[in-house]
Design a protein around this nucleic acid. Sequence first.
DNA 1: CGGCGGTCCTGTCAGC
DNA 2: TGCTGACAGGACCGCC
Length: 274
Amino acid sequence: MPELPEVETVCQGLLKATQGLKIAEVVCRRDALRFPLPKGFAAHLSGRRIESIGRRAKYILLRLSGGETLIVHLGMSGRLFIDSDKKKDHAKHDHVIFYFNDGTVVRFNDPRRFGLMDIAANDGIATHKLFKHLGAEPLDEEFSGTYLHAQLQRRKIAVKLAIMDQKLVVGVGNIYASEALYDARISPNRPAHKVTAKEAARLQQSIKKVLRLAIKSGGSSLRDYVRADGELGYFQHHFKTYGREGEKCPNCKGLISKIIQGGRSSFYCPKCQK
DNA sequence: CGGCGGTCCTGTCAGC
DNA sequence: TGCTGACAGGACCGCC
């Protein structure tokens, strides 16, 4: 479900709702999400405080008292709900529930169970199996036109698949890949190594621009994404191509096409994007 | 190492 | 109305 802007929005909501709170109890209603939860997961977490919350790629990092980090990935359909009304209730697919000392309840709900949770020492995050092969953060300075061009040069796959590859740049998923390529006027079909330095610079700017605007809008709410505070995101109203097959291109009034790449839908304007 | 296809899982929706 | 198949915001794994 969530790409970087949605995860970032969830992090902000979680921070506001839980920073400084102590975990009183954790209830696991399933022993595995995408992977089995670590042994003694619930007991290990109780009594810890949420010191701060960060993000790497699409992973939410909850830094706990005691020098460890709770890693949460939402997968395709994962959501975190914050309830402040102290009800000890749960809904279908609420797999892990966190009860805090002040009555706050955080429920991890994930119908498809592509999400995951793990616990790692703070200084072990960088070398964690899930993290060690991750590429650049798109909103960091290291993600420059030069970097992107160099990375694209060594790949023969379509540029859309390349920018969705987490080893190259993290956080860009199916929606924002289409949107960024439209903004940069580059066809998703273009072989990565045929993107020029000038275009790569433009694409890097477009990725940053689209992600920043989406974060500002609170992410995109399609089928099931809601912010941690229960509010909807608004960026879906800004989509220029995603989900708009057959509609008019905002730039040339031609029609938006849909193609399948790597088994996933891509949307673009064949006239504006070459 | 790069590239590709299969796979995990449930829900929803279009089409018959 | 009910069934069936396609598709959904992710990303790992194994094979070539």
